[in-house]
Amino acid sequence: MPPLLDIQNLTVTFDTDDGPVTAVNQLSLTLEQGQILGLVGESGCGKSVTAMSILRLLPQPSTRITSGKILFHGHDLLQLPTAELQDIRGSRISMIFQEPMTALSPLHRIGNQLVETLQIHRKMPRKQAWPTAAHWLKRVGLPDAEERMYAYPHQLSGGQRQRVMIAMAMMLDPAVLIADEPTTALDVTVQAQIFDLMHEMHKNNTGMLFITHDMGAIWQMCTHVAVMYATEIVETGTVQEIFSNPQHPYTRALLAAIPANTAPGNPLPAIPGAVPSPRNLPKGCHFSDRCPHAFDKCHAQHPDLYPTPCGQSRCFLSEEKT
């Protein structure tokens, strides 16, 4: 069976006043049926740009996808005419964002926004769409769902708005859900409720790409992980394997920096320095400047992805092992 979503050698370039900057470099990822794939990394590593590329949501013409393919059921989404892509957006591949306020129209009632989605994608008559939409609002646990259909987005809390977004995504039963930091702006107790809803979608056979910077959230939600650092993927694997036996020094450092892994009051094993700007990446391995294991080759040559027991790692130390 072909993978649900197959990203091959994706390169995304931003045109800036100071010339072109590569935000995502030769990135390949596959999302198989039944997987929840976590894409984890720090701000600016290119994880959101990758997600936005899938549905071609990046601003034109300042952003260019300079190479690569994104295959969905054998069709390259990057080559698809806009009209055909429109049918896929929302209906086959849904996306939820960090800030639901910006994803909902502030001028329209929640109910109308949900109904419109059903009218467009399911060709459902309004009379039938209204109770269907109300049913889904109830499903995602919004109190007084029927009344809330008449509410405007600003009358709901952040958690409630995210529930509306999830209801909108769930009711079309998409094959793929892309969730870009869906709970970062929410409290932990609300986050736990949203995670439950996403797990429910997963049980209904929706594959997910889950983007976050929180390793704890990856553990809780995902089956597989891809770690990004400075425009590229540095490690992939199953959640179990990445957490118990991380191969890339960056993955190891990210896990070590979580306060829970150090006894209270003791210094945290922080990663020295800062994430390099995509404008000014180190020659050789992008992590070499901050890596405790770096040797001469790391500073001179750029590593490929080498196979590990259940994934890949972009590190010369992993090359030696194979």
């Binding site: 109190p143 809390s157 958690g159 409630q160 409290d187 932990v188 107790t189 609300v190 986050q191 736990a192 409720q193 995670f195 439950d196 929180d214 390793m215 704890g216 959230a217 553990w219 809780q220 939600m221 957490f243 896990l255 979580i258 829970a260 892994n261």
Partner: peptide, 24 residues
């Protein structure tokens, strides 16, 4: 207790958690 339970902790049991219903 609910607050502690809601934190996604690496290595924790993924199924057995106390859910806090509703919102503040």
């Amino acid at each position: 207790k609910a607050l502690l339970d809601a934190i996604p902790k690496v290595g924790s049991d993924k199924s057995e958690r106390l859910r806090l219903p509703g919102e503040i």
